[in-house]
Amino acid sequence: MSNQLDAPKNYSALYHSLGEECREFDLRPVFTGDVFKTPDAKLWAVVQHPCTFSNGAAGVLVAEVVEGSYPSQKFWQGNFKKMFLPEVGDLHFEIMFGQLGFKRISELDAANRIVLLSNYGVNVLMQRWIYHNARVLVATSPTIHDSTSGVFEETEMLFEAEVSCVEAGRPEGEGIKLVTKWLDEDKPNRRGALDEPQLRPALRQELSALVKTHLMTA
């Protein structure tokens, strides 16, 4: 592997959604790399690995996000106390690893989300976070990706089911409960299978059928 931190060539690859687009994903559970604007107009990014709070944790470690300058490629090789978030609309932001806080999940659910990172973006954030905290350099591909992609998939599944339920007039939270129960039923096989990329399409198909049946019968 390279002995340098990743320097993304294409900044748009870092993002799942930005700005107003994030409203489409209001029902998506909180995830690593999400940037929230709290009522005091401060910006916070979730920096913990998703596995640490995916099972109903009350709160999560966050780092303050501030406006910064456009990072050239060489910026990514240094500046170990930051994660760059360039080209968020017309602005460039930085997640400051030295300015930490703790937020309850319920607080974040009520705040406005302005950035959702892509799986690749989460991997780059995790690489810099690990390097900052432990001075250990781990490759984003394949290693960090293999440790985040399963739980990223789980979050997407929770969101998909939740949207389907809410769009069908069901109360908020029903889709989340449905998926969580489905994953736990076959514990640990179904949740564990999410860590195997080639098994995911079959699981998505199974879940899609489950949601349809649920909405027709419940």
């Binding site: 592997m1 390279s2 781990v138 490759a139 591909s141 394949p142 290693t143």
Partner: peptide, 8 residues
């Protein structure tokens, strides 16, 4: 170099 990790 980019897509192989020999360490982890």
């Amino acid at each position: 170099v980019i897509f192989v990790d020999n360490d982890f």
